[in-house]
């Protein structure tokens, strides 16, 4: 059953006109005896916003780390866009570099302040360019980390629960910021989350990961900006929650 769904996922992704930003075939990853990712296949076309849902421990963060090329103890085929950027759950800014230097870290050539400022401007943080990272608030630090991803002009952005540690209000703001940035720059985005609402607010396609494979895929065609009170939204949410085994009705 899982394999059937999975095949359809690949078909949906491959059938669109855009070239792929991510192609994964028969990916397998084990930690000792436990297989975390088991024969997973996935394709993300350029410019698509994909959210990856799943309970904790289902392997979604492992998948993202593999796609970020941080974990290569794998078997199978993985192809990823060469211009890519990652934002983690914690901002992971180097505390000894000022914010703007963190943003342009790793770019070739001398640190380009103007370029950093442009990226910081986009996330609304230009006024903190010269601050030390440890003096930023949680939301500011996360926005700086988004600027660091953005400045690379990525074709693929990998976001590992980047809103997880934010308070509810900041979270809403940073979510809509990510949506705006995506609409402006159109990278493919793979957002790992365990928040169904967040997934449906942002995604073109919501994937559910379970037992090391993608067990379910939903194309979200609701018009943007989306509202959590939209009846169609509520229906989709109920369906996904059921898929995750939380809803009122059972997945069957």
């Amino acid at each position: 059953m899982a394999t059937g769904l999975q095949r359809s996922v690949t078909a949906t992704g491959g059938g669109t006109e855009a070239p792929p930003a991510v192609v994964v075939r028969n990916l397998r990853r084990s930690f000792g005896d436990t297989t975390v990712i088991d024969d997973l296949s996935l394709s993300v076309p350029a410019g698509q916003f994909v959210t990856l849902l799943g309970r904790s421990g289902c392997g979604k963060s492992t998948l993202l780390r593999i796609l970020a090329d941080l974990d290569n103890e794998i078997s199978g085929e993985v192809r990823i866009a060469s211009r890519r950027a990652v934002a983690f759950q914690s901002p992971r800014l180097l505390p000894w570099k000022r914010v703007w230097r963190n943003v342009v870290l790793g770019l070739p050539g001398r640190p380009d302040r103007a370029r950093a400022l442009a990226a910081l401007e986009e996330v609304g943080l230009a006024h903190r360019a010269d601050a030390w990272p440890k003096t930023l608030s949680g939301g500011e630090a996360q926005r700086a980390s988004l600027a660091r991803a953005l400045v690379r002009d990525p074709e693929l952005m990998l976001l590992d629960e980047p809103f997880g540690a934010l308070d509810a209000l900041t979270r809403i703001r940073v979510q809509s910021l990510v949506e705006q940035l995506w609409q402006r720059h159109r990278p493919a985005i793979l957002l790992v989350t365990h928040d169904v609402e967040e997934a449906l607010l942002l995604a073109d396609r919501a994937l559910v990961m379970e037992d090391g494979v993608i067990s379910h895929s939903v194309d979200v065609t609701l018009p943007r900006p989306r509202s959590v009170t939209d009846p169609a939204f509520v229906e989709l949410r109920a369906e996904l929650l059921a898929r995750l085994g939380v809803g009122a009705s059972s997945p069957s």
């Binding site: 950027a85 000894w96 570099k97 790793g106």
Partner: peptide, 26 residues
């Protein structure tokens, strides 16, 4: 985690040592 983050922004071995490891050890 900082070393990892620095790798994802494309720092090589020399860059890691210069920008992450040495300042972190300071």
């Amino acid at each position: 985690t900082l070393v990892e983050a620095a790798r994802t922004v494309g720092l090589g071995r020399a860059g890691l040592i210069r920008h992450v490891i040495l300042p972190g050890a300071l």
